[in-house]
């Protein structure tokens, strides 16, 4: 029987991720406390304010348990603020901002500018002939990526989607459009990880 995927629900667009996961046949549960991570087969860190989410993650002791969940094989999907939190570091973050370091990328926060510069654009997704609409809101970009990281999409010469092993990140918000390709990709990662554990 398929297990559940958690959506970090400290703040931000967690409901939209739950809906998107349901659309691709994955049961999602909201996670606010460390105890709620037990037994999950994957975790989504949604868009929101990374500063707020980071502070609440520290206050409720979620960092170590999320790292442990990932180390145990659970895939992770981070969008926008979620990408920032999953990164190794940021070039311009607050001094006390914390990063989970689950993917070998360095991000630049609010890289595309303030809200008046927020935009929608068609993106070419690696290995997919059909373009995907990216909704970028005060979005970050990937400033640099390690050798093991596969860049999945770029905009204006900057990487805006990437995957390394079982970690998928996007600078934009796939949960705000009806296009479920990236959630399906994540669901397949969860499916494969379950197979690996069973084997």
């Amino acid at each position: 029987m398929a297990g559940k995927v958690g959506v970090l629900a400290l703040q931000g667009a967690f409901r939209e991720h739950c809906r998107a996961l349901a659309d691709v046949g994955v049961e999602a549960v909201e996670v606010r406390q460390a105890g709620e991570l037990a037994g999950l087969e994957g975790l989504v860190i949604p868009g929101g304010e990374s500063t707020t989410m980071s502070k609440l993650m520290v206050a409720y002791g979620l960092e170590a348990p999320i790292r442990e969940l990932h180390a145990a094989g659970a895939p992770l999907f981070g969008t926008c603020a979620g990408m920032i939190l999953a990164a190794r570091d940021a070039v311009d973050g607050l001094p006390d901002q914390r990063y989970l370091g689950l993917i070998d990328i360095v991000v630049r926060r609010n890289a595309f500018g303030r809200q008046v510069a927020s935009f929608e654009a068609a993106l070419a997704l690696a290995g997919d002939p059909e373009p995907l609409t990216g909704v970028f809101i005060r979005a970050p970009w990937i400033e640099s990526a390690g050798d093991g990281v596969q860049v999945l999409a770029e905009h204006g010469g900057h990487a805006v989607a990437a995957q390394q092993g079982s970690v998928l990140v996007t600078a934009f918000h796939p949960e705000l459009t009806g296009d479920r390709r990236l959630h399906r990709r994540f669901a397949e990662m969860v499916e494969r990880a379950r197979g690996a554990v069973a084997a």
Partner: peptide, 21 residues
């Protein structure tokens, strides 16, 4: 190529503020 100021982008920021103060 990129479109700014769309309703989706405007309401999208509010979506990101949800659950917050």
């Amino acid at each position: 190529m990129a479109e700014t100021g769309t309703m989706r982008v405007k309401s999208g920021l509010a979506e990101m503020l949800k659950g917050g103060v």
